[in-house]
């Protein structure tokens, strides 16, 4: 697959994925596994799992891994640019007009409903993440301490993230499982 085709393929994926990184997996599978047979399904799932457990956005991390696998470093950059380009264009257009529409009564009512739906979507995503990440006493304790401390103080979230990582490093026993 040429760099140009990779770029166009990822632009199409970025423009079709409603719902972010998780919604992108079937589209990626269709483009790279079913249509072009460039990568096996197993390896795709392995890269997806890896993308979830690194800093950054799942969709962009996935594009970097896949782009690198197909066309090296240039492929990684091209795929990452392709996947974010439609978002940047679409949201810039919406943001330019948003405040003009935000004052309309009907729009405000729709958004009050959407905001509730968004909370439920976040709750569900958080639940899935917690099921994977809160596996023992230590991880549950880190969760409880970070939640309480961030409710009661106004420190920058970065401190809590670093604190959690350090606590994990110090307290993680040998029970940290082989396949994460």
């Amino acid at each position: 697959m040429s760099l140009f085709t990779l770029f166009i393929t990822y632009i199409k994926i970025g423009a079709q994925a409603f719902g972010g990184g998780y919604a992108m997996l079937p589209l990626i599978e269709n483009a790279f596994v079913t249509k072009h047979r460039l990568i096996g399904e197993d390896e795709l799932y392995r890269l997806f799992a890896l993308s979830q457990s690194l800093p950054g956005l799942i969709a962009v991390n996935m594009a970097i891994f896949l782009g690198h696998r197909l066309r090296g470093f240039a492929g990684a950059v091209v795929a990452a640019c392709g996947v974010i380009l439609p978002s940047i264009v679409i949201i810039t257009l919406i943001a330019a007009f948003f405040r003009r529409f935000a004052d309309i009564d009907a729009v405000q009512r729709v958004f009050r409903g959407l905001n509730i739906a968004v909370l439920v979507i976040i709750a569900h995503a958080l639940w899935k993440m917690a099921k994977k990440g809160l596996t023992d006493i230590v991880t549950m304790l880190i969760f409880a301490v970070v939640t309480a401390a961030s409710l009661l103080t106004d420190f920058n979230p970065v401190f809590f993230a670093i604190g959690g990582a350090l606590a994990g490093l110090l307290l993680a026993g040998r029970e940290v499982k082989e396949d994460g």
Binding site: N115, G133, V138, V146, A161, A165, G168, G180
Partner: peptide, 27 residues
């Protein structure tokens, strides 16, 4: 890497949980 993420993910869960509570209050 695995040990770093062992603690980082529960901390991220806590931070997202608290933001969701604030968003709920705001809604």
């Amino acid at each position: 890497m695995r040990r770093v993420f062992y603690g980082l993910i529960p901390a991220a869960c806590g931070l997202i949980f608290v933001s969701a509570l604030y968003l709920l209050k705001n809604a």
